[in-house]
Amino acid sequence: MFIEFKDVSFKYPNNDKNVIDHLSFTLEKGSMLAILGHNGSGKSTIAKLIMGLLKATSGSIYICDTLLDEKSIDDLRQKMSIIFQNPDNQFVGVTVKDDIAFGLENHQIPRQEMLEKISKYATLVDMMAFLDANPENLSGGQKQRVAIAGALAMETELIIFDEATSMLDPKGTKEINAMIKKLKNEHNKTIITITHNLEEALFADRVMVINDGKIVLDGSPQEVLKEQTILEASGLKLIDGIAIIKEIEKTSLLSKENKEKICEALWELTFKM
């Protein structure tokens, strides 16, 4: 198992309410998990707990079968990287190249090896042409791709995308989602995406829906999408195609055959989008 949560709870000091409430789950190596929930559901707290940026109030977290605690945290962090929501807040370098190099320099990687890694991962995210550019002059999607290259350069097994597209325009969102698919399919990374968009959960292997710090749904995208009542109760908006299916299923206006045909078409179109 790459990650294992055993009865994990978390609350902020001076607050009685558990933000994460007795959470248990496991994540296999090489798989992609989407954690879905509305703002304030606790989904980003899970990412921070995994990264060791917050400490569980009770319960235990295992990364690669090692208990995450003060002793192991530095070693375990080498296995994980995270891409945050706002690309502007994660830049440290004056050029794209410096920025990708930042993590490598911290680890005192020899210069030749560093340059090789920079060009390898800048190529992977399709940013080779921008190595000497100032990150400030890039589009949102390009900035996030540089952040991804920086994370990839560290060659961590797990990459967490914490609402990495929520500040991007549709073009940037498409770029990043295509990149996530590529990392999943061609590079065998373990991936967690944290999002409130059902659309972005459709290409995960597994979807976990969080509400009030608890797991309310856990299954394949197809299984989870069928649970419309729970999704709505969890503050998530149904994808239009699925919402229409729900309306059609209630009606007696259509013949059974017609109903099935249209619902099937809508279902397939939704996954094709």
């Binding site: 509305h38 703002n39 929501q85 929520s166 500040m167 409130h196 968009n197 503050g235 998530l236 908006k237």
Partner: peptide
């Protein structure tokens, strides 16, 4: 509506 969740947007 950027950055709000789907319910917040609506």
């Amino acid at each position: 509506t950027v950055g709000l969740d789907p319910k917040g947007k609506i």
